[in-house]
Design a protein around this nucleic acid. Sequence first.
DNA 1: CGAGTTTGACCGGCGC
DNA 2: GCGCCGGTCAAACTCG
Length: 304
Amino acid sequence: MDQYSSSLVDTSLDLTIGITRMRVEEDSTTTALVDELKRVNAENKKLSEMLTLMCDNYNVLRKQLMEYVNKSNNMAERDQTSPPKKRKSPARDDAVSSAVVGGLSESSSTDQDDQYLCKKQREETVVKEKVSRVYYKTEASDTTLVVKDGYQWRKYGQKVTRDNPSPRAYFKCACAPSCSVKKKVQRSVEDQSVLVATYEGEHNHPMPSQIDSNNGLNRYISLGGPVAPAAAASNGSYSLAKPVTTVDLTESKKVTSPSRIEFPEVQKLLVEQMASSLTKDPNFTAALAAAVTGRLYQQNQTEK
DNA sequence: CGAGTTTGACCGGCGC
DNA sequence: GCGCCGGTCAAACTCG
């Protein structure tokens, strides 16, 4: 957030310098300049305070969200392990995601289950390591289960599952015959406007069209609005473990280093989304327009 | 007419 | 062994 604050200061300084230069050229009085400078500084300070407040609020909300996610993951694990019943939980995807979050979910298994679990985990390790989940914000009215992620997919099935009233679509990668990547797309139970895409496997070929990919990126971010932070927060932990997942869509050029630190990217994304939210806010744009026109009018008055 | 989608049937894993 | 459920197949269908 310091990054953003500093950029804000820079911008305000630029404005001040510009104004100062104009004033000198106009040969205006120094007192007017000082007043103007003070006013701009006060404005800058106020904006900085607002930004700090906003960041604090964001951090609090983020913290709460992370606690909530951790809590629900723990509860899901408990639900899977504590009851003696072996029947598979309907929330299979949660099990997958938790496996990706913290490696394999080595829960407190009983001795009788050990052999079975070891066998099963060995079998699933290969698959689970390559499972990732991506959230896409779509129009609520959009009923198609199409996700623009830069790759070409061939739909081979659709099924209504028990845990979700909306159908789940099954896709295979159609870019290369040898590529066995599969994708499941289903609407979120909580938010029907959110598409949850589960990818299995890794592409053994480059993305067919970088342009398409960029389109997908723009669409993802521009529509991401309220969802992307939640997705980033909920995915954040396992995007660290598997950078090819959600990160692939936002920063495809920076995926190469698996051990890179995620936080600056989150910051960058956050700043972009804050800016996006602000520019989408009619109150903010109206206030900004009023401020700019006011400033221009003020300058015109002083120039005359 | 070919490529892609839809959709009911089928299969295999799992719990009871 | 039976039933449930998710995943896959493939024939029918649609569209450009």
